[in-house]
Design a protein around this nucleic acid. Structure first.
Lengths: 231, 231
DNA sequence: CCAATAGTGTCTTTGAGACAATATGAC
DNA sequence: GTCATATTGTCTCAAAGACACTATTGG
């Protein structure tokens, strides 16, 4: 392959975060209002540039850049994070050629609620397509792919444990599923699948009970081991 | 997020191709012998740099760069191609920071065989791990992920139609599956799954029969419609 | 007792896995 | 007929979908 340095040159590399959580039985995504041109004032996915050279080294890994962006946009240090897709269409950013490696981040609600509210950063419903059409750059496309990825993941093995607190009830887990898929499953069939995971030792009973309303308290569970990572 | 231009700078962006086909009931991957430093003389995945700026524009799209690399490495103009993962570990290429967007390419055997043989480019078995440990850069890791992606794809909906000629027999389709997974399925159960796809109209009967050995000829089939794309 | 949610059980269907027998064409 | 492969079928079991009932708590 002919490497014409004039043509090849170099590009800016960035990471974009599609950060999900479920609050109030609704799938939310974190957006950030841009404070500079282009698209100043428009909502966009949080992200940032990847350090390509840093103190004489080759800079940081892509995943480290994504985690750094997560910390800078939410204050959260660690979370489930996985690479989604890389977007690099010519012209997607005016003026500069930017290659964006998009990542999915999953936050349990107890940690998502800690994030400080501000005028320039907030949770948006991902089911109602409120600002979807108005996101900066190609971020609507990135978000769309993130939602699809999340849905197909939940259909496979993982039962949304990443989007639930460390201890949880069956109902909480089911609510997450329904929020992600936007439709309600049968609660008995869902519970049966859950029972199988208990039988397989994937889920263990946790001490105590959870008791939100004025009715029967629910058993509390926790993840028995690390989940098989589904790609 | 603080954008320190000194730190961020720009990186070289490349594409790497994990090109698969099944020949002689064995999963093959296309490798290319490097003719320059570093890793001169070592087998590597074919690929090349992405045009970042070109005649005053922002250059080419990532997928176009991948297709261009495919044409340059095989002479083939069109094929099934899909993004695999982006590799960008600091230090993965000595001297330069290179972000590699890896792509999976699937070729049917009739088209794969046309590719001219040469000393610097050849098909290697992906099941026997012959040169896996000796690939240039992190290409062994990329190849590994490509194989896993291919395997999980076939388990889902797609029954490897991309790796078979336009018309095919059940046995040919089954051979592809066995080559990809490295183990033999039960041929009657495989045929039953196939029958379902026929009943659903996904696969249609094609005229003629195929008759390779000295035994009973097999029916010939073709894809009835475009496959649902599984992500 | 009543309201509200938690938890258990049944029936049916679909598809996967294991396994055996028949059909067809070249020689 | 014989050899080799193609094609059809059966039995069993695991899991999904639809649906009804019992249990426990606060009031």
């Amino acid at each position: 392959m002919s490497l014409n340095t004039q043509d090849i040159a170099a590009a800016t590399v960035a990471v974009e975060l599609v950060t999900f959580c479920v609050l109030d039985a609704d799938l939310k995504v974190r957006l950030h209002r841009r404070d500079e041109q282009p698209f100043e004032g428009t909502w966009a996915l949080p992200g940032g540039g990847v350090r390509i050279s840093h103190q004489g080294t080759q800079g940081e890994n892509l995943e480290d850049a994504a985690r750094r962006a997560l910390t800078e946009s939410t204050g959260i240090e660690s979370a489930h994070i996985e690479q989604l897709y890389t977007f690099g269409r010519a012209g997607r950013v005016p003026g500069t050629r930017v290659i964006s490696v998009a990542w999915c981040v999953l936050l349990p609600p107890d940690r998502a609620q800690i994030i400080s509210k501000s005028e320039s950063s907030a949770w948006f419903s991902a089911s109602e397509d409120v600002p979807w059409m108005r996101l900066a750059f190609d971020h609507a496309e990135i978000l769309q792919m993130g939602v699809e990825r999340l849905q197909s993941k939940l259909n496979m093995a993982g039962l949304a444990f990443e989007l639930v607190p460390e201890t949880f009830t069956v109902a909480e887990l089911r609510d997450v599923h329904e929020a992600v898929h936007g439709k309600s499953h049968d609660h008995r069939n869902f519970r049966r699948r859950f029972q199988r995971m208990v039988a397989d030792g994937l889920v263990l009973e946790a001490p105590g009970r959870r008791h939100l309303g004025k009715s029967r308290p629910a058993k509390v569970w926790r993840l028995g081991c690390r989940l098989p990572v589904i790609t």
